[in-house]
Amino acid sequence: MQKVHPILNLPNILTLIRVLAIPVLVLVFYLPFHWSDVCAALLFLAAGITDWLDGYLARKLNQTSPFGAFLDPVADKLIVAVALVMLVQVHATAWLAVPAMVIVSREITVSALREWMAELGQRAKVAVSQLGKIKTVTQMTAITLLLAQKPKFTLDGDIIMNPWLWLSYGLLYLATAFTLWSMVSYLRAAAPQLLKSQSKS
């Protein structure tokens, strides 16, 4: 049996730092300095690394806790959603708004699905999969690259594309594809319970 540690253990402290870094990320991103983009990107990247690190330490040090299990995914979704909102505002284009909408909608859907499955005692069926982990890495990489470069616009209001921006958009769309794929995978895993509930309603 795994030993449950108090709330203030090292993995949970790292997760709390990730949550507290969100307003700092927003502040740094909007600072009127030429280095603010790169600084915001590095802050977001550091948050992504702590996401992996706190999970690793929780398993390695045997310091799992219900609080950590709750807060870790919440912290991830909060910082991703906030970063996407900022990027949509700065880029102001449907090419970024659409994948951002899909990613945020997926996170809400899967979170609700996991909560519902947990109430049925079937949480393990929709646990984070390998595909979900690949999605997360691709998504974090794309957002980091997008944060690092505020777009420049033509006189007509169109974004001036460059190789790094093309790469960033490409990775974001790849992450969006993984996002939809993983959501369908989770919904298929939960389908027996969803259909059973529907047939009794």
Rank of each mutant, 00 (worst) to 15 (best):
S65M: 03
G68V: 07
S65G: 09
G48Y: 07
P73Q: 00
I49E: 05
A69N: 13
R59I: 01
Q63S: 14
L53H: 05
L43S: 00
S65E: 02
I49F: 15
Q63N: 10
T93N: 15
A94R: 14
A83F: 11
N62M: 10
I49P: 10
G68W: 07
T93M: 08
G68T: 02
L71V: 11
F67Y: 13
D76S: 07
W52I: 00
D54K: 11
A58W: 07
A83C: 04
V82Y: 13
A92E: 06
V90M: 10
V88P: 11
L96I: 15
A81Q: 01
T64I: 13
F44I: 00
T50I: 04
L84T: 03
D51H: 05
W52M: 12
N62I: 01
A94S: 14
V80E: 12
H91Y: 15
L84R: 09
Q89F: 02
A46F: 04
A69V: 01
G68K: 11
L53Q: 02
N62L: 08
H91R: 13
S65T: 10
D76N: 08
V85S: 10
F67E: 00
P66R: 02
L43I: 11
V74W: 05
L71P: 02
K77G: 15
V90E: 13
T50H: 09
I79Q: 09
L45E: 01
L84G: 08
D51K: 09
I49C: 06
W52P: 01
F70Q: 09
A58N: 03
A69D: 12
A47F: 00
L78H: 06
A83P: 13
F70S: 10
H91A: 12
V80D: 13
G68N: 08
D72Q: 09
H91I: 05
A69W: 00
L57Q: 05
I79H: 12
G55H: 11
P66A: 03
L78Y: 11
N62Y: 00
V74S: 05
L78N: 04
T64H: 12
K77V: 06
F70W: 13
Q63P: 12
I49S: 11
V98T: 08
A58E: 03
L87K: 03
A58F: 04
T64K: 14
V82W: 14
L87D: 09
D54T: 04
W95I: 14
P66Y: 01
D51Q: 06
L45T: 07
K77R: 15
Q63F: 01
A75E: 02
F67W: 13
A47Q: 03
Y56L: 15
A46L: 14
L96A: 13
T64M: 13
V74P: 08
L78M: 15
F44P: 02
T64F: 13
R59D: 05
A97P: 10
L43V: 00
D72C: 07
